[in-house]
Amino acid sequence: MAHETQTADIDDPDRIWPTGLTIRESEELHKHLIDGARVFFLISVVAHLLVYLFSPWGG
């Protein structure tokens, strides 16, 4: 049963393999990763600022 459905999925022209996601689904997943990277960039900037206040480098 699962095998039959899988065949139908492979034939789905919207899907891109090997992920099996559609373009829109891939874009959404990508957006989550990019948003996460942006948030982490901001956090790392603040963390570096705090580290500099605790122990300044380059001085």
Binding site: V46, L50, F54
Partner: peptide, 18 residues
Amino acid sequence: GGFALMPFALLVLAGKGQ
């Protein structure tokens, strides 16, 4: 993110280092 900031935030909060 909170955990990444926390140790440095606590050290600055306590006025440690410089």
